[in-house]
């Protein structure tokens, strides 16, 4: 698959972030087009999750800029005022590694919380939309269940539905299958692939290289806080240009060689 040719939805330039003395991001440039699926891969500690969280205002980079739709950019070097943080957050929705569903709320209540409480959607409308989305991921019959009554894969699908219910421009996935038992990974990846096929714009931090290879339009390999290599999956996975990319892929795809 070649790169999507849509308009640019999101652009970051020179994102830098340190935690104490440790510089986690050393200048990350990222461009996401509408309808595009971008996968961030790389070893632990490479900064990929920090990049993702920065896109949602959960982390505030020390430097760099972020712009949506080619509009005015937020300059993190100037700090991030509340209004801007909310404006950034408004554009995207996050699916967490550990789903972070609200345990005291039913599945349905989890899904409608954002639309009703934050977006001011009427409850009836939010419920109708939530039921439709739950039905899509095969969980219509679980609407009144509490999260702890679901399997890990079901919980994560609810997490995805909760994100979808916000009708964001951009879906962010932070290693959505890493905490799952292996046999439950598939059901989550299938849903994600369907979303990609439907044209959702997605940034996915993942260790599922096969998913990145089949679904992503562009793959970024992060290492040591920089984008060591980026490209179409076909190219990056079969003929990596960077030595570090090659070693990373070898370790994962051919651990016994």
């Amino acid at each position: 698959m070649s790169r999507i040719d849509g308009p640019v939805l999101l652009q970051t330039k020179g994102l830098r972030k340190s935690f104490g003395d440790h510089e986690v991001l050393k200048g990350i440039d990222l461009e996401v087009r509408r309808g595009e699926v971008v996968a961030l891969i790389g070893p632990s500690g490479s900064g990929k999750t920090t990049v993702l969280r920065s896109l949602n205002g959960l982390e505030t980079p020390d430097q760099g800029t972020l712009a949506f739709d080619g509009g005015p950019s937020v300059d993190f070097g100037q700090g991030l005022p509340k209004q801007q943080r909310f404006a950034i957050r408004d554009r995207s929705a996050m699916v967490f590694q550990h789903h972070n569903l609200f345990p005291h709320r039913t599945v349905l209540q989890n899904v409608i919380e954002g639309p009703v409480t934050v977006q001011g959607v009427s409850k009836a409308e939010a419920v109708a939309r939530a039921e439709q989305l739950l039905d899509r991921v095969g969980l219509a019959d679980k609407r009144d269940a509490y999260p702890h009554e679901l399997s890990g894969g079901q919980q994560q699908r609810v997490g995805i539905v909760r994100a979808l219910a916000l009708a964001p421009d951009l879906l962010l996935f932070d290693e959505p299958t890493s905490a799952l038992d292996p046999e439950l990974v598939g059901e989550v990846l299938v849903v994600m692939k369907e979303l990609a096929d439907e044209g959702w714009t997605m940034v996915v931090v993942t260790h599922e290289l096969q998913f990145a290879r089949e679904v992503a339009d562009e793959v970024l390999f992060l290492d040591g806080g920089v984008v060591a290599e980026r490209g179409a999956p076909a190219q990056l996975f079969t003929a990596p240009q960077n030595e570090r990319t090659r070693r990373f892929l070898d370790r994962i795809l051919r651990p016994f060689d």
């Binding site: 959960l58 909310f86 957050r89 972070n100 345990p103």
Partner: peptide
Amino acid sequence: PKGQWEAGYTIGMSNATTLRRIILPQAAR
């Protein structure tokens, strides 16, 4: 857990709303 705050934030809630609707009900238990 911190993730509950973050989940509140990512669905667009303010600190106060997250505290009231997400955190306090769980803290109550």
